[in-house]
Simulated assay, not measured.
Amino acid sequence: MSSRDSILAAVARNQPERIPLPEIPAFFTEEADVLEKFTTVAVSIGSRVFRVQSLEEVKQVLLEEHSGARRIVSAFPEFAAVAETTIAPGIDPHTLADLDLAVLPAQLGVAENGALWVTDAQLPLRVLPFICQHLALVVPQKNIVPLMQQAYEVIGAQEYGFGTFVAGPSKTADIEQSLVLGAHGARTLSVFLLE
């Protein structure tokens, strides 16, 4: 037996006794409570949250909020009149350096921390949420879960090549201890809770 196998066998023999995971109480039971908590937390970390009835309403809000946007990319075909809606998978990400606004779907949101889950199934190109100046994510209201545990239950049963949680606009306070928005990604995040 090699020393590696000997060490691994010793570790395996000395494992602590298994105990069941604790039950996590449901902090929010009503959908309205979950949406209110999500909104409160998301706003507190710098996001702007809008409750909307349709993608047309999303488009109206974004065109008003970002009237000066020169280049807009969207994963929604409904935005074809105002945005690029087809991005070739092999495109050089450097060609998106001038991207003002990206409008993308999110699979789910988490009320506990205001985070939104996005995978390569929702993204025409992985770099989009990070390279744009302004990011808008659209998530169905029914897909907001109370806690990260519920989010992990949902995403743990799926297959995807890439996934990320996005929570608020990009920010850092490393530079001379002053808050800088957009240092590592989008300067603003607009979240649309779609009925």
Results as ranks from 00 to 15, higher is better:
Leu179Asn: 01
Ala111Tyr: 01
Val61Arg: 11
Thr85Arg: 09
Phe130Trp: 11
Phe79Trp: 07
Gln15Pro: 00
Lys59Tyr: 00
Ala42Gln: 04
Asp33Glu: 15
Glu30Met: 10
Arg126Met: 09
Leu108Met: 14
Gly182Ser: 09
Phe50Ser: 14
Gln177Tyr: 11
Val52Asp: 14
Leu194Cys: 09
Ile19Trp: 09
Asp120Trp: 02
Arg187Ala: 15
Ile131Tyr: 02
Asp120Ser: 08
Phe27Ile: 03
Val82Ile: 11
Gln53Asp: 15
Ala88Ile: 07
Leu128Glu: 08
Val34Phe: 01
Ala97Gln: 12
Arg71Pro: 08
Ala83Gly: 07
Met148Glu: 10
Arg70Glu: 14
Ser190Pro: 07
Glu65Ile: 00
Ala157Tyr: 05
Leu128Gly: 11
Ala183Asn: 08
Ala173Thr: 07
Gly168Leu: 08
Gln15Tyr: 04
Tyr160Arg: 08
Arg18Val: 15
Leu193Gln: 03
Ala26Leu: 13
Ala81Cys: 05
Ala83Phe: 00
Leu99Asp: 03
Leu147Gln: 12
Val11Lys: 13
Pro77Arg: 13
Val180Cys: 07
Val191Gly: 03
Glu153Trp: 05
Val11Met: 15
Ala106Glu: 07
Ile155Phe: 06
Val110Pro: 12
Gly185His: 10
Val49Phe: 05
Ala186Asn: 13
Leu35Ile: 04
Glu30Pro: 00
Val11Gln: 12
Pro129Arg: 10
Leu8Asn: 13
Ile19His: 11
Ile72Val: 00
Thr188Ala: 06
Leu137His: 00
Asp100Ile: 09
Ser6Lys: 10
Phe165His: 05
Leu108Lys: 08
Ala88Thr: 07
Ala10Ser: 15
Phe192Cys: 12
Pro89Arg: 09
Lys142Ser: 08
Ala186Ile: 15
Pro25Asn: 14
Gln107Tyr: 03
Met1Tyr: 06
Gly114Phe: 13
Pro105Cys: 09
Trp117Asn: 04
Ser44Val: 06
Gln133Leu: 00
Ser47His: 08
Ala106Ser: 14
Ala136His: 02
Leu8Ala: 09
Thr29Glu: 15
Asn113His: 03
Gly90His: 02
Phe192Thr: 13
Glu56Leu: 12
Pro124Trp: 01
Thr86Ser: 12
Gln133Trp: 00
Ala183Val: 09
Asp92Ile: 04
Leu147Glu: 10
Phe27Met: 03
Ala186Val: 13
Arg4Phe: 10
Pro89Phe: 08
Ala121Gln: 14
Ala97Arg: 05
Leu96Tyr: 01
Ala115Asn: 03
Ser67Asp: 14
Arg51Tyr: 07
Glu65Trp: 03
Pro77Glu: 15
Ile87Gln: 09
Asp33Arg: 02
Asn14Ala: 15
Gln141Glu: 13
His66Val: 01
Glu64Ser: 11
Leu96Ala: 01
Phe27Lys: 00
Asp120Leu: 06
Phe192Ser: 10
Leu181Glu: 07
Leu96Asp: 01
Gln53Ile: 09
Pro89Asp: 13
Asn14Arg: 12
Arg51Ala: 15
Ile91Pro: 06
Pro25Ile: 15
Pro25Cys: 11
